[in-house]
Design a protein around this nucleic acid. Structure first.
Lengths: 132, 132
DNA sequence: TTATTATAGATTTTCAAAGTCGTTAATGGA
DNA sequence: TCCATTAACGACTTTGAAAATCTATAATAA
């Protein structure tokens, strides 16, 4: 089990948007260059982030992406969910009559991780980077 | 990102071993029948559990599998690690000079989940099932 | 010795992630 | 009004790991 590379891209792209000046939108071209990944592929992640309401997009000259909310209000979980979806990471494939107790345990464990990721904001990272 | 179905099989197989009488080993044939999965495929999971030291195997007539430790000493994390491996579920693919701060956050989050899974023993489940 | 059972390796199938390509739509500037 | 720029969309291909099967081998009890 692993987080997709797409999530890695998205997290780094978001971090870049935070550190970039907020008035000038950043295009996928520049973004892809900075990260060293394919422009067309990265744009798919960006679109997902837009649909999740985390960033704003503008087409045309001087278009690009910018944050939609304050960076203190964007959590790691927001970004991960935008890319990976919100489905549980464990699904019992057996047909017990009632609820699967095993599944319940793993889902509870997952919830622990999610709470941590929910409390970690992208702004925290930017702060850490500056103070180092 | 999802836990593999193999993990699902392994967890259920372990649960069955706990509830089964401890003196008579359980063969993969019976186990596969109970779970409704392929015998040859399930045997691969069982072999992994053996190598992880969670269960004991015996070939030949009246052979099969039995727990190696007490069920209070076998955690969900033990089983999951035996099947999925112990690699981190996030690996940054970029080459920053130093450590990747993003990766650090996700790994810390993962640690939260693992602690929960480490504290949940397979014996807890068996207990819950009886009291219901 | 024989039936039984686990182990091992090779192989195939399946499917989602990773990535590419071409087209369309929207916008600002000339 | 036209053009360059940029995001969005859909179809498609490639890649790789999970899922599953098959066959052969080794170990053990009766």
């Amino acid at each position: 089990m692993k987080y997709s590379q797409a999530t890695d891209y998205a997290l780094h792209a978001m971090l870049y948007l935070v550190t970039a000046a907020s008035d000038k939108p950043v295009g996928v071209q520049l973004l892809a260059e900075k990260l060293g990944v394919s422009q067309t592929y990265l744009s798919k992640m960006m679109t997902k982030l837009v649909k999740a309401g985390l960033i704003q997009s503008a087409p045309g000259a001087n278009g690009g992406y910018r944050l939609r909310r304050k960076s203190e209000d964007i959590s790691f979980l927001d970004i991960i969910h935008a890319i990976e979806g919100t489905a549980s990471l464990f699904e019992c494939s057996f047909d017990h009559g009632s609820e699967c107790l095993i599944q319940q345990v793993v889902i509870d464990a997952e919830r622990q991780m999610e709470q941590y990721l929910e409390n970690k904001k992208i702004a925290d990272l930017a702060k850490t980077m500056k103070t180092e």
